[in-house]
């Protein structure tokens, strides 16, 4: 089992140009990062492209990762997620927004729930539970599927401003809940 500090150590070696560490980091984390990209893109070939791009960024910017309370996996997942969303939006610019609805993966926890049960994790999960079902789906759609306000408005068939007002209220509730 690769621990957080193992991954942190690998990233710090990668920052020094250590190719073996880079290879090990890939082996330890690529499956999770591909899952993240696949969840956003729903297309394996595109997701594998994004995975490759993600690791090129990691190689290039590893020297800018530092220990600061952001776990190394959070950092890596954020890069993969943002790269996937950039890809999704670059290709979607030319396609019909309605396609988004067809590519929505079914929501719901997978059997592969991570065993990590940090208090932070417990807190957002608990606070998400307090949202109405549709609002919880919207927040999950934003985070997991990379949906923008425009995508969510199309999915829920409401005007963009309504969607924004509606989701902002949920984000405020979440923040209040998590700060308790």
């Amino acid at each position: 089992m690769t621990t957080t500090s193992d991954i942190e150590h690998m990233i710090s070696r990668v920052a020094l140009g250590d190719r073996t560490a880079f290879s090990n980091l890939y082996d330890a984390t690529s499956a999770k990062l591909l899952g993240v990209a696949l969840r956003v893109l729903n297309n394996r070939a595109s997701a594998e492209d994004v995975l490759q791009e993600t690791f090129m960024k990691v190689w290039r910017y590893a020297d800018r990762y530092s220990r600061n309370g952001m776990s190394p996996m959070t950092w890596l997942i954020t890069i993969a997620r943002n790269t996937a969303i950039d890809r999704l939006r670059a290709t979607k610019d030319e396609s019909d927004v309605a396609d988004v609805m067809d590519t929505m993966p079914s929501s719901g926890p997978t059997p592969e729930q991570s065993a990590i049960a940090s208090s932070e994790a417990g807190r957002i999960m608990g606070c998400m539970e307090q949202l109405d079902d549709d609002k919880r789906d919207a927040v999950r759609g934003a985070y997991l599927d990379g949906l923008s306000y425009a995508d969510l408005a199309a999915r829920f068939d409401v005007p963009l401003n309504t969607m924004r007002t509606w989701l902002r209220r949920s984000l405020i509730s979440l923040r209040e809940c998590m700060s308790q």
Binding site: G35, R44, T74, I77, S114, I116, E120, I124, R140
Partner: peptide
């Protein structure tokens, strides 16, 4: 950081 735990449910591929 706050939303990061949501990715725990994403299956590895």
């Amino acid at each position: 950081n706050q939303f990061a735990p949501l990715s725990d449910e994403i299956a590895e591929e």
